[in-house]
Design a protein around this nucleic acid. Structure first.
Lengths: 340, 340
DNA sequence: TTACTTTTCGCAATCGTTTTCGTGTTTAAA
DNA sequence: TTTAAACACGAAAACGATTGCGAAAAGTAA
């Protein structure tokens, strides 16, 4: 139950001043080898470690970065965190997590909680709620206070900061192109509501791919499922509204797997009768059967890049501001069993 | 690029002392209403917020809890974190994450990094590596310094602290009992190596259930797959060594799903010819097909309980030590399509 | 011995707060 | 008018660490 030992206690015990102890432990030349050795020995014996909080206050930096994400149980986000943690830890930074739960208010609250000295910078993927409200003042204010922000995946155009984004447009195009190439004629897309930026971009990629093949998109092939809706029901409606569907591009794993399930219930074989491509390469895609052909976003790499960007900005503090960078992570198509 | 405003700046601006500002903002009666109002107005206008780091140093607590887990991309752990975060946030605590990556060294490093003032207490699930080495000195030392620890899921008996554990023994028994009840005669278990405590307990539960039904366990029905091994190959060997298998209890989702896959490859129908039960209720279990009957550990609840235990201990600091508590979270069987 | 340099250490400021205590001013009671 | 109480505010210490600077002690040269 003994508290951690401090410089003051070492100083008192050894009858020297606090500054002597501090200097000795940091190998300052002002201290004689004799004294330094004595102090070091005592410190080691008592397992002295400088108090991080005191250092943070003195240096005005906490060596901690704050990560705000909508949902940690979402596999994509946990992979991003893994990447962030890896890079941050390597450079001696800690990672503190804030969950917005896809609520604007909680996102703001979390940021305010952390922005008062606890952290040196943010890495954030904004909530759907925030994208819906289009209210980004908390980001602007935070940056105004000199706290750097890196946005990843879900971002807002009006916030001027470093960004690490997925080329969702190209991902959507890639997936659709693949379906076209293997001979699909009636390709449906299962997306979310339009205000979710990433889904919107994937849909645009889908349209672009169709256009490249001189195919006119049909509204009966496009479905947008809103948060909390009954996915299976919606997918069934999609299949009802167009009986000729022979290819499905879903903007996430759950939608894709539900599509396969519904297709099978309707007597369609995957991939013989219908091919399915999902988005984001999680456990589900790999282990469901048939395993899912999908667009990988390289989540871990996104986390790594985000952390690198942030820490680079934290390094050259006093120097003049560098221009914000945007790193685009290319997607890649992972072929599995759900496409023929 | 203006820094956050401090008490000192407010004081200078308003020609009062720092202490007057502090007192005014905290509604101390010593300050006249007139002065207080003026200060409050100025503070609000300039969006003053006390610096967390300074408060941490002064109060000797950081209002932050450290969570050390082996792998955040593991769905079980991310759900636990969700539970922790929910409770912690409600009480004004932040959550800082350390990933051990199932390495003993990184676990120790992470703890040392955080234990120097950054956090007020730990919630930890130890790494497999640590369980293998059976070296728990870092936990003991941390507690020795007055830092409370709550262990969850994977724990060590020799560490005396609050614990939130799954009744893995009962979970294993429940699953096996279910398989017996639906008529399985040759029930295999797919587990991991013995040093992983949770797997060991589940295996014991399996044996207990067999014993209750007066069935002698066969070694040909018990397989233990080590880290990094080719799961599919191992499962195939299991099916080779005993052709009569009509029920499988797997200690995790991946093993269970692989078992279903291998079974199907061998012409066995799930659940008509063979029933499968997994462990831990993740996305995979819910969305694979046939969907997986599984033992749920109630991960979110575990996180909540862990956070509650830790914060309760942080509250009554100076009081005499309360005895360590162990909370056992009961498992429950979730029936889906993989059992008949 | 004197003067000057070098070595070795402590003082004090600083980071941003909170809080105890002291002090000067005002007000009310005697 | 004197005295005590009430009021309003500031100085300073504390949390734990770092660091520039001044000063004492020791060493060196003349």
């Amino acid at each position: 139950m003994k508290r951690k030992i401090t410089l003051k206690q070492i100083a008192r015990e050894l009858n020297v001043s606090i500054s002597t102890v501090s200097k000795a432990l940091r190998d300052n030349h002002e201290i004689s080898k004799e004294t330094a050795d004595k102090i070091k020995a005592f410190a080691k014996q008592n397992n002295y470690r400088p108090n991080n909080i005191a250092l943070s206050l003195k240096n005005r930096k906490s060596m901690t970065i704050g990560v705000i994400i909508p949902d940690i149980t979402h596999h994509f986000f946990s992979k991003v965190i893994k990447g962030i943690e890896k890079i941050a830890n390597k450079q001696g930074f800690n990672v503190i997590i804030g969950l917005s739960n896809d609520s604007f208010d909680k996102e703001v609250l979390n940021m305010e909680m952390l922005a008062n000295g606890s952290i040196d910078g943010f890495i954030i993927s904004i909530s759907n709620d925030t994208q819906l409200k289009q209210d980004y003042h908390h980001l602007a204010e935070t940056m105004n206070q000199g706290m750097p922000i890196v946005m990843f995946d879900r971002f807002s155009n009006e916030t001027i900061c470093d960004k690490v984004i997925v080329d969702d447009f190209d991902g959507g195009r890639k997936a659709t192109k693949k379906l076209l190439e293997i001979g699909c004629k009636h390709i449906a897309i299962i997306s979310t509501e339009d205000f979710v930026s990433v889904s919107r971009h994937r849909l645009q990629g889908y349209l672009e791919a169709l256009d490249n093949h001189k195919i006119t998109p049909k509204s009966s092939l496009i479905t947008k499922i809103s948060e909390g809706a009954d996915i299976e029901k919606e997918v069934n409606q999609l299949f009802d509204s167009n009986k000729k569907i022979d290819g499905v591009f879903a903007v996430n794993e759950i939608f894709a797997i539900t599509a396969m399930k519904v297709a099978r219930q309707r007597g369609l074989r995957v991939p013989e009768d219908i091919s399915v491509i999902g988005f984001s390469d999680g456990l589900l895609s790999k282990h469901c059967s048939p395993s899912l052909t999908t667009i990988s976003q390289h989540a871990v790499k996104m986390g790594e890049k985000s952390a690198e960007l942030l820490m680079k900005r934290l390094e050259n503090e006093s120097e003049e501001e560098e221009l914000p960078r945007t790193i685009v992570i290319e997607t890649s198509l992972i072929e599995r069993e759900s496409t023929r």
